[in-house]
Design a protein around this nucleic acid. Structure first.
Length: 159
DNA sequence: GCCAACGTTGGC
DNA sequence: GCCAACGTTGGC
């Protein structure tokens, strides 16, 4: 048993990588590329631990919401897309000997019936969930244990 | 260090 | 496509 378990919400555009894409990947695991925000980078680098729970969130799509449950599956390592000029995540200012952007592998565990934003907002138990906060643009946010448990143990079970 | 301009995110 | 909110950039 881990002596510490953290919880996260991670946004992915389903056009790029949906929960179904992740579940279909080898070992159901995908490299979480493309994080280009320092606060989110610091979560990846410093705060996450292997085994931490992940709410897999679909963003920038017709039905934004929590679409699945996943887990952090690796230590941090350099995001290779920052060095790929053909990638939209290419960062010419990042040097190979001092990579600016990191990623974690994320292992999908299961799909859940989509919990959309209206449904999330309808529960007072989820007041304070960062993804619901106005103007929030962070692609990775920490999730409080009480929020995690309410979502996973209650909402993800209803249909 | 300030802050205006600009680019991006992301729901609607 | 709109636009509010936020992060980054760069002149000073």
């Amino acid at each position: 048993m881990p002596d510490r378990t953290g919880f996260w919400l991670m946004k992915s555009e389903p056009d790029e990588c949906s929960i179904d894409d992740a579940l279909a990947a080898p070992d159901r695991t995908v490299a979480w590329t493309g994080v280009r925000n320092y606060q989110a980078r610091n979560f990846i680098r410093d705060a996450m631990r292997i085994g931490d729970g992940v709410l897999f969130y679909h963003s920038s799509c017709p039905q934004p919401g929590i679409a699945g449950i996943a887990r952090i599956a690796s230590e941090p390592r350099p995001d290779p897309t920052q060095f790929d000029p053909a990638s939209k995540y290419f960062d010419a200012a990042s040097r190979a000997d001092a990579p600016r952007w990191l990623l974690r592998d994320v292992q999908a565990l299961r799909r859940i019936p989509l919990i959309d934003l209206a449904r999330l907002r309808a529960h007072a138990e989820l007041d304070g969930l960062l993804v619901l906060r106005k103007g929030n643009r962070l692609s990775i946010t920490p999730v409080e244990p009480r929020h995690w448990h309410f979502i996973v143990d209650r909402l993800a079970r209803d249909t």
